[in-house]
Design a protein around this nucleic acid. Structure first.
Length: 156
DNA sequence: GCCAACGTTGGC
DNA sequence: GCCAACGTTGGC
């Protein structure tokens, strides 16, 4: 039984089109404990919405699939990386990452504003919580289905 | 560019 | 352990 997630990414640094081109990527650079813990809970086969943030029209563009369980994020041990963390060691890597693969585009882009129009999502979806800044969010099966149904309808 | 919300740091 | 200061995220 796969679990559902949401991955935030800035399209200017790593957009969904790039994941499609490259097929798969390492989700490194997460430096938030809550987000890290969500990645530790991920299992191969889990699915996640791919969300574009910090852009003109934020929203969900597609679906990615987890292809590798969490393992130490080596960028934390690389002094040349912008994600270098001097506190990370081989024994205690602190930060972890998963691998994700391109799964498919949604039938159409679903904007953040449109998600907010659905009371049933606003009530529960972590992404829509006031002040939510988590780069990795859990998504319930119910929320997953609602978003898919929205994406299958023509834009309002 | 503004700013609210949040997480982290560090002095005490 | 408290909490003010600071840095970051991310929508608008």
């Amino acid at each position: 039984m796969p679990a559902y997630w949401l991955f935030k990414s800035e399209p200017d640094s790593f957009g969904f089109d790039r994941l499609e081109r490259e097929g798969r990527t390492e989700w490194s650079g997460v430096r938030n404990y809550q987000a890290r813990n969500f990645m530790k809970a991920m299992r191969v086969g889990d699915l996640g919405f791919f969300y574009h943030s910090s852009t003109k029209e934020p929203g969900i563009v597609g679906i990615a699939r987890v292809t590798r369980d969490a393992y130490p994020d080596f960028t934390a041990r690389d002094p040349k990386s912008e994600y270098f963390d001097p506190k990370a060691t081989d024994e205690k890597p602190i930060w972890e990452m998963v691998d994700v693969a391109f799964e498919r585009y949604l039938p159409r882009f679903v904007t953040l504003a449109e998600l907010r129009e659905h009371a049933s999502l606003v009530e529960t979806m972590v992404l829509l919580r006031k002040g939510s800044r988590l780069s990795i969010n859990p998504v319930t099966k119910r929320e997953w289905g609602i978003v898919l149904r929205i994406a299958e309808r023509p834009a309002a």
